[in-house]
Every structure is written in structure tokens, then in C-alpha cells.
Amino acid sequence: MKKRDIILIASILIVAAALFLVVELTKKDGAGVVVKVDGKEVAQYSLSENATYELNGGTNILVIEDGKAYLSDANCPDKLCVHQGKISRTGEVITCLPNKLTVTVFGAQESIDLVS
């Protein structure tokens, strides 16, 4: 392990940190969430009203509360999607790989066909 090894590894970490900052700083408050199963859009929900929805025939339970969305339960054993926590800013995403399901926050401009 020489100096240039440390320099290379450190620069990778700096790039990662910079990307992380860019992602964090470009986020805006979201207007709603879009649910996709197997790449196809199945539903859109507004973040402004509190509600609970059963997704994908009940495999995942989506809760919207105080402008934040999270999955409260899932039928898979590891429940990674539940542990991913609450999302409310544009671009944030909860992924459930076993059920091929994603919940993504979109901003105000993108909500063209959102039924209000």
C-alpha cells in the first residue's frame, strides 16, 4: 500500500461525497409519489393527503403521512423496503426488488396527469 493507493481511494471517496452533495442539494419538496411495478406505472398518489394504500394486490402497504411516504409493511422476509424509511423529496425512491416495485417522489412540474 503506497501513497498513490491512498490518493486513488481518497479521490474515489471525494467523488462519492461530491455526488452525494449534488443529489442532496438538487432535491426539492415532492408533490406526489408514483408507484411502478415491473417497470410499469400502476398508480400516483398526492403527498398532500394522509392515506394508506395497498400496493400490488397487498404485497406492500404504502402510508402517506404529513407529506412523507413510507412502506409500513411488505410480504417479503427481509423487509428492505420498510427499512428504507420515509421519502418526501424529489428523486427519492423506495425499492422492493422481490416484488419489482418502486415508489418514487416527483416534483410539482412533473405531475402532469396527477388527478387532484
Binding site: 481511494i9 461525497a17 443529489v23 411502478k36 417497470g39 428523486g91 425499492t95 418514487t104
Partner: peptide
């Protein structure tokens, strides 16, 4: 490419850091 969405790139910064730790 598979899910035809670029939103997954959201995970890139986190994966770069965990990938580095795993690599070390």
C-alpha cells in the same frame, strides 16, 4: 436499462462508498 429509468442512479453515491469499503 432494464427498468428504463435513471432514478436508480440515486443509489450511486451510497454504492460508491460501500463498494470502496467492501473493496478495502
Amino acid at each position: 436499462i432494464v427498468m428504463s429509468t435513471s432514478q436508480i442512479a440515486y443509489y450511486l453515491p451510497v454504492l460508491l462508498i460501500t463498494g470502496t469499503v467492501a473493496g478495502v
